[in-house]
Design a protein around this nucleic acid. Structure first.
Lengths: 158, 158
DNA sequence: GTACACTATATGCCGTGGCATATAAATCAA
DNA sequence: TTGATTTATATGCCACGGCATATAGTGTAC
C-alpha cells in the first residue's frame, strides 16, 4: 500500500537534511580537487562525462538527464564549446537542434578528470559505502531515481 | 582498515550520480510546493527552521551548519530580515556579530512551511524510506554527515 | 502551398552563491 | 595604553541557473 501523507514517519526531514548536507560537502570537496588538477568543477565534469558516454545528445536530452533547465544547459554547453571541449554538429534530421560531441581535447579531459573524480570519491565514500550495506543503499537510490524520472518529478520550467 | 584509493569499487560514481540527481529533483519538487503555498523556497525554509531550532545563532554558525560561505549566508539573512522574518539582535558578548532570531511572523512561517515540507517529503519518499531498509539508509547518511563535519571536509572559503 | 500550431534552442533579466576584499571589533604583546 | 594580529561580518565582482521571451525550423490541416 502506498504511503498516505497523513502517515509522517519521524526521520524523513532529518534524512533529507543529512542527504543535502552530505551532498553539499561532497560536491565542494570534489570541486576543490577537480579545480586544482584540471581547472574545471564537478558540474562541468558531469557534462563532459555524459557527452562522452552519450555522443550525439541534443541540449534538451542533456537538460532532462540532469533535471536542469534547457536555458541553463544551453549556456553550460556554450562555455564548454568556448573552451574547446565540446562541438555542436548540425543535426541532419532537424535544423533547429545540434548534436553534441566531445572534441579530442574534451575526451582527454573527461578521461583524466574521471580518474581524479573516482579517486577522490573513493577517499570520501569508500569506508562508508564499500560494504554490503553500501550496495543496498546504492540500490535504494537507483530505485528512487528511476521512480522520480518515470513520474517526471522535479523538472524545472525551461 | 581504511579504504585505499587504489581500491575503486565499481558503483561509487554511479551512486554519486544517483544521489545528486535524486537530490536535484527532490529539491525542485519541494521548491514548487513551498513557493506555491508560502512564497519561499526550500533553502529559505531550511534557514528559518534552523533559526527556530537554534535561536541566538551567529551568521558563521549558520554558514557552518549548511556548509556554505559566510558571505552567502550574510546575504541570505539580509533577505529574510528584509522580509520581516528574522531579526539581528546585538550580541552583548561581541559587537562584531549579531545574534539571529525569528520574528513572530518568521516563526509562524517556519511552522506552516514545515507542515507543507514534511507532507510533500512524505509523498516523495514515504514509499521508499518508510521501511526498515529506509531506516538503515538514514543511519548511513547520519554517520557520513558526522564524519564529514568532524573532518571539516567540503567547506567553502568565505 | 499557406496559415497556424508546435518544438528546439538561444538570449535577457534577475536572484543567488563563491571568492576576495574592506571594515569593525576583539585579542594579544609589549 | 597602543600597535599588531586575528576574528566576524558585510560588500563588490563575477559566474551560473531559473524563468520568460525571442527566433528559427517543423509539422499539419485545409
Amino acid at each position: 500500500m502506498a504511503y498516505k501523507s497523513s502517515d509522517q514517519p519521524a526521520g524523513l526531514p532529518e534524512l533529507f537534511s543529512d542527504l543535502v548536507r552530505c551532498e553539499t560537502r561532497l560536491y565542494n570537496a570534489l570541486n576543490d580537487r577537480l579545480r586544482e588538477r584540471h581547472a574545471i568543477v564537478t558540474s562541468q565534469f558531469e557534462f563532459l562525462r555524459h557527452l562522452r558516454d552519450h555522443p550525439g545528445s541534443r541540449v534538451a536530452d542533456v537538460a532532462a538527464a540532469f533535471a536542469i533547465g534547457i536555458g541553463a544547459t544551453s549556456k553550460g554547453i556554450d562555455r564548454l564549446e568556448r573552451d574547446g571541449w565540446v562541438a555542436r554538429r548540425p543535426n541532419p534530421a532537424d535544423r533547429r537542434s545540434s548534436l553534441l560531441e566531445l572534441t579530442g581535447e574534451g575526451r582527454e579531459l573527461a578521461d583524466a578528470a574521471e580518474a581524479t573524480f573516482t579517486e577522490r570519491l573513493t577517499e570520501l565514500l569508500g569506508d562508508v559505502f564499500g560494504t554490503p550495506g553500501g550496495a543496498a543503499v546504492a540500490q535504494v537510490f537507483a530505485t528512487l531515481r528511476a521512480a522520480l524520472e518515470r513520474d517526471r518529478i522535479g523538472l524545472p520550467t525551461g
